[in-house]
Amino acid sequence: MPQTVVITGASGGIGRAAAREFARRGDRVGLVARGRTGLEAAAREVRELGGEALVAEADVSDHEAVHTAAEEVERHFGPIDVWVNVAFTSVFAPFTEIGADEFRRVTEVSYLGFVNGTREALARMIPRDRGTIVQVGSALGQRSIPLQSAYCGAKHAVNGFTSSIRTELMHDGSNVHITVVQMPAVNTPQFSWVLSRLPKHPQPVPPIYQPEVAARAVVHAARRPRRKQYYVGASTVGTLLADKVAAGLLDRYLARTGYDSQQTETDVDDDRHANLWAPADGDGSEGGEKGRDYGAHGIFDDSSHDRSAQVWLSQHARLAWSASAALAAAGAAAAVWAARRTT
């Protein structure tokens, strides 16, 4: 049955890919972001894939703008069933080279934007006692890396905030669900529009996954919300495990490799458009590139994976465990048979 879905950050990257995945299910999708060009392109894709689309321009750091967007979606499509918080921005630079206003801006979008979206979703879902909120998180929300202090801080905050909300819903016996999908490095346009003070073009730390891998995980989480969280990509799981068992060693490794691994060998373009203060895909009036649609993918298609075995295993944990148990039992039986043959 089609649902009403709101996605923030829907004009590009994971949000854009998630909008397409929901559209394939015939859902009604409210597309929230700042960039008009990307939003309109996303709306066309949603309609072409069999869904319904509504464009709602809003800066998620502005709680009144998010409220207006939510009201508009419900006027057109009815009650919101799923709310997906994706929108973020960042600065690639050592902390000492990030201005106070820049750090605050990243926090307002990448953390308070999730708070604002969650508030609007809960205001509608709690009285109806149904609905799901999906927070698009990151492995960097549990294991920080150099050059992304503002973003890592915001993602850590999202995890703490979400855990608090989850326990409040549990206390109330609510049927509203909230879950986090922790993402790996993803090939999105952010590396082409993020504000960067690095000498070379920024890149995600390999291995890199295509946004469709992340989007499928988001849709799965919306359909089957896990009480705590989902992990996407073996690199996410491996990083978090390493942080638990050898945090000090991982610190030293990241200090040695974290700068080079987040940069290509290509110099940064002088005319690069950053989206910290205005959308890179706006109407041209605020410094963005008029008429440019960045889409879901970044510039790393050639080195990105379009599948993740770990995602399948995490979504089919019982089946995977049963298969492992069956294989173990078969192996044990074979060993017993072999032992008997030799006696």
Score class of each variant (00 low, 15 high):
residue 237 V to M: 14
residue 238 G to Y: 10
residue 238 G to K: 14
residue 239 T to P: 00
residue 239 T to V: 10
residue 240 L to Y: 07
residue 240 L to I: 12
residue 240 L to S: 07
residue 241 L to C: 07
residue 241 L to V: 10
residue 242 A to Y: 05
residue 242 A to T: 10
residue 242 A to K: 08
residue 242 A to N: 02
residue 243 D to C: 04
residue 243 D to M: 12
residue 244 K to G: 08
residue 245 V to L: 09
residue 245 V to R: 01
residue 245 V to Q: 04
residue 246 A to S: 09
residue 246 A to K: 07
residue 246 A to V: 14
residue 247 A to T: 09
residue 248 G to F: 08
residue 248 G to C: 05
residue 248 G to P: 06
residue 249 L to W: 14
residue 251 D to F: 11
residue 251 D to Y: 12
residue 252 R to P: 00
residue 252 R to L: 10
residue 252 R to E: 14
residue 252 R to V: 11
residue 253 Y to H: 10
residue 253 Y to N: 00
residue 254 L to G: 12
residue 255 A to V: 11
residue 255 A to W: 15
residue 256 R to V: 15
residue 256 R to K: 11
residue 257 T to C: 00
residue 257 T to Y: 05
residue 257 T to E: 05
residue 257 T to D: 02
residue 258 G to N: 03
residue 258 G to T: 11
residue 258 G to R: 02
residue 258 G to C: 04
residue 258 G to Y: 12
residue 258 G to S: 08
residue 259 Y to I: 14
residue 259 Y to E: 13
residue 260 D to Y: 01
residue 260 D to E: 13
residue 261 S to G: 03
residue 263 Q to S: 02
residue 264 T to G: 03
residue 264 T to S: 08
residue 264 T to L: 02
residue 264 T to A: 05
residue 265 E to D: 14
residue 265 E to V: 07
residue 266 T to S: 06
residue 266 T to P: 01
residue 266 T to F: 09
residue 267 D to F: 06
residue 267 D to Q: 08
residue 268 V to E: 04
residue 268 V to F: 05
residue 269 D to S: 04
residue 269 D to W: 05
residue 269 D to Q: 07
residue 270 D to R: 13
residue 270 D to E: 15
residue 270 D to F: 00
residue 271 D to R: 06
residue 271 D to E: 10
residue 274 A to D: 15
residue 274 A to P: 03
residue 274 A to G: 05
residue 276 L to S: 07
residue 277 W to P: 02
residue 277 W to A: 01
residue 278 A to K: 04
residue 279 P to Y: 12
residue 279 P to E: 08
residue 280 A to K: 05
residue 280 A to M: 03
residue 280 A to P: 01
residue 280 A to I: 00
residue 281 D to Q: 10
residue 281 D to C: 07
residue 281 D to M: 06
residue 282 G to K: 00
residue 282 G to V: 02
residue 283 D to H: 09
residue 284 G to E: 02
residue 284 G to R: 07
residue 285 S to N: 09
residue 285 S to F: 07
residue 286 E to S: 14
residue 286 E to F: 13
residue 288 G to I: 03
residue 288 G to R: 13
residue 289 E to C: 01
residue 289 E to Q: 13
residue 290 K to R: 15
residue 291 G to V: 06
residue 292 R to P: 02
residue 293 D to V: 04
residue 293 D to L: 10
residue 293 D to R: 09
residue 294 Y to S: 06
residue 295 G to Q: 07
residue 295 G to E: 05
residue 296 A to S: 15
residue 296 A to Q: 14
residue 296 A to Y: 09
residue 296 A to F: 09
residue 297 H to T: 03
residue 297 H to N: 10
residue 298 G to A: 04
residue 299 I to M: 13
residue 299 I to W: 12
residue 300 F to E: 00
residue 300 F to W: 11
residue 300 F to T: 03
residue 301 D to Q: 15
residue 301 D to K: 14
residue 302 D to P: 01
residue 303 S to A: 13
residue 304 S to Y: 09
residue 304 S to Q: 02
residue 304 S to N: 03
residue 304 S to W: 09
residue 305 H to S: 13
residue 306 D to T: 12
residue 306 D to I: 06
residue 307 R to S: 09
residue 307 R to Y: 12
residue 307 R to Q: 10
residue 307 R to T: 14
residue 308 S to V: 09
residue 310 Q to P: 01
residue 311 V to T: 06
residue 311 V to H: 03
residue 312 W to F: 12
residue 312 W to D: 00
residue 313 L to W: 04
residue 313 L to R: 08
residue 313 L to F: 07
residue 313 L to Y: 03
residue 314 S to E: 15
residue 314 S to Q: 13
residue 314 S to T: 03
residue 315 Q to W: 03
residue 316 H to R: 13
residue 316 H to N: 15
